[in-house]
Structure formats: structure tokens, C-alpha cells
């Protein structure tokens, strides 16, 4: 990854110097270790702020909308698929963005690493597949593969699907026998057990809407939870309202979700909200053979009618 950030900085400074783009959207170090935050770079002098490592779990496709002038954006595999979704949904034009593709070997699960240490982590570095994590009392060397996020272990599209520049060599894609083991596990339960599972899943939700805000798909000017005339969802902590929010948020992502994991990354209560969207991903794959954001010329399945659409549910 170290060579990759040099390449990113090189491309970014070249683009800014030539005036090809006005801004570069990338990641910068946060105020604590293992935290990176999105950053917008306007001038060549600031290019050194850019970083890229295994903690860049957020999705930068979220920031390419409503930009004036041309912007460059650093895109992992999932980010690039979300950019494709944006182009298909007319949120941004292809010639408005310059995509700096970064082949990705997965992002780490910060919560899992934090759980290893009793105290705060003061230093985090990585070299290839090894992570060096230091807390105030001890130091550990970890294998990155064992600490990947759940969605990254099941990722089938690590390389960007569309890019203008590439900041590293393409990586080998994973081949998975079953890409949806987590969905299968829930599907095997009976109705009451499923209900119980989701009740427990959402019971800690504080309705902060971080999952919605982190999601590149959620760009409605007024979200359904903020609507007040008519008000579809209560705004309190009522369990039914919380469930309605999670259900509808997920359903709005049907056939569009790229499983980038930004929602889980953003959740302060460690709720695996992917349990909802994963089912929709599996369904759209099985019913329509569709994975979101792979092709810039194709309309999403819920957008178009085709005579071959499954209709077993209609009497």
C-alpha cells in the first residue's frame, strides 16, 4: 500500500497542476490511529495529506455529487461500482469525474482489533499483509487477512470496474463457492427465530442515521424519515419505528447496494445493518442475475420491465 499512496499523490498532483481537475477527493489521517477521514484537496501543496491504507473503509462515491467543475476521486472496487450507479442514475456525468482506481485487498475491522486490546491504540502501521498495532501497554503483529471486515471477506470485485488512472497493480479477485453464507444462515431459521434475530439486531439502534449518511445510495433531498406531511415513520425510539426505518432504508437500496460496508463502518452501536441489504443483494442476483454497478450501460432491474422478470409472487 505504501507504493500505492505515492502513486496516488503523484497522479493527484499532476492532475491539480495541469488544471485537469479542481479538487481531489481522498482520505486523510484522522486525529486518532486507525481512523481516516475523507478530505478534499484543492491545491498541489496539500497532496501530501492524502493517505490510503486498510482503514479507509468509508465510501468516497458519496462525495462526487453536486460538485462544480471536474473532480478526481480515489476509488476502491466498491467505490467505483457506486460511481457507476451514480452515473446510471444521472447523479453525475462520467466526464465530470476523474477516477483514480485503487485495487483493494480489503479493509480491516477496527472493532475487532480494538477488542484485542484493553486500552487505547496509539499507533497503527501496516506493511503488505501484516498489521502492527501498538497500545500503551503492548504491541502486536497481526495478519490482515484475519481482521478483514465481513463484507471484504465476501467481496468479489476488489478491482475498480471503471477508472481513468490506476494507482497499483490489479489484484487477484476472490472466488467464493457461496458468496452469501450469512444470508443462508438467517434463511434457515423459522419465522419467529428470524423475527427474534432482527429484534435483537436493531435493539441498540439510536436512530442517528449514520448508516444513511454514509451510504452513497442515500441522496434523496428529503429522506422518508424526515418527511412530515404525511409522516410515515415515527421519529422516536419506538421499536416498530426503528424497524420500519431499517426495513425501508434497506429496501431503497434494493438492486443498488454494492455491499461496500460504509453503513456498518459508520454505525456507532456496532449494528450489522448489512443483514438487511445482503438479502436484497442475494435476491437481485438470483432473480435478475444482477450485481449493482458493474456496467455503465445497463439499467438496474427494478428500473426496467422485461417480460422475463420473475412473477411467481403475483396471483
Amino acid at each position: 500500500m505504501n507504493t500505492c499512496i505515492n502513486k496516488i499523490r503523484e497522479i493527484a498532483s499532476k492532475l491539480l497542476e495541469n488544471g485537469e481537475v479542481e479538487k481531489v477527493i481522498g482520505f486523510a489521517n484522522g486525529t486518532i490511529p486507525m481512523a481516516t477521514s475523507p478530505v478534499v484537496i484543492n491545491s498541489k501543496q496539500d497532496v501530501d495529506k492524502l493517505v490510503f491504507n486498510s482503514t479507509c473503509g468509508l465510501n468516497l462515491a458519496n462525495y462526487v455529487r453536486n460538485q462544480k467543475g471536474k473532480v478526481a476521486v480515489i476509488a476502491k472496487g466498491c467505490d467505483s461500482r457506486n460511481i457507476v450507479t451514480h452515473i446510471v442514475e444521472n447523479q453525475v456525468k462520467r466526464d465530470q469525474i476523474h477516477i483514480i482506481g485503487v485495487p483493494c485487498t480489503g479493509m480491516i475491522n477496527k472493532k475487532k482489533i480494538e477488542a484485542l486490546f484493553g486500552d487505547d491504540i496509539i499507533e497503527f502501521t501496516e506493511d503488505g499483509d501484516t498489521l502492527n498495532v501498538k497500545s500503551s501497554t503492548r504491541e502486536e503483529t497481526l495478519n490482515k487477512k484475519e481482521y478483514l471486515r465481513d463484507n471484504c471477506t465476501l467481496c468479489m470485485h476488489r478491482n475498480p470496474v471503471v477508472y481513468d488512472d490506476l494507482a497499483g497493480d490489479l489484484v487477484q479477485e476472490q472466488t467464493l463457492e457461496n458468496p452469501y453464507p450469512d444470508v443462508d444462515r438467517i434463511e434457515a431459521m423459522d419465522a419467529d427465530a428470524k423475527w427474534q434475530h432482527f429484534q435483537e439486531l436493531t435493539q441498540n439502534c439510536i436512530r442517528c442515521y449514520a448508516c444513511r449518511n454514509a451510504c452513497p445510495l442515500c441522496y434523496c433531498p428529503t429522506c422518508f424519515v424526515d418527511e412530515s406531511g404525511p409522516q410515515w415513520v415515527g421519529k422516536g425510539q419506538n421499536k416498530t419505528d426503528v424497524d420500519t426505518f431499517h426495513f425501508l432504508r434497506a429496501f431503497h437500496c434494493a438492486g443498488r447496494c454494492t455491499d461496500c460496508g460504509a453503513c456498518v463502518e459508520a454505525c456507532p452501536m456496532d449494528i450489522n445493518v448489512r443483514d438487511f441489504t445482503r438479502k436484497l443483494n442475494k435476491d437481485s442476483f438470483e432473480m435478475f442475475g444482477w450485481e449493482a454497478g458493474l456496467d455503465i450501460t445497463k439499467r438496474p432491474p427494478l428500473d426496467v420491465y422485461s417480460p422475463g422478470d420473475p412473477n411467481a409472487f403475483i396471483k
Binding site: 422518508f224 410515515w232 416498530t240 420500519t244 426495513f247 425501508l248 429496501f251
Partner: peptide
């Protein structure tokens, strides 16, 4: 709209 279905159930 899916909202209607959920509203009705709710």
C-alpha cells in the same frame, strides 16, 4: 409504495 404496506401493518 412500500411505506403503505409497512404503515398498514404498523
Amino acid at each position: 409504495s412500500p411505506k403503505f404496506i409497512l404503515s398498514a401493518l404498523r
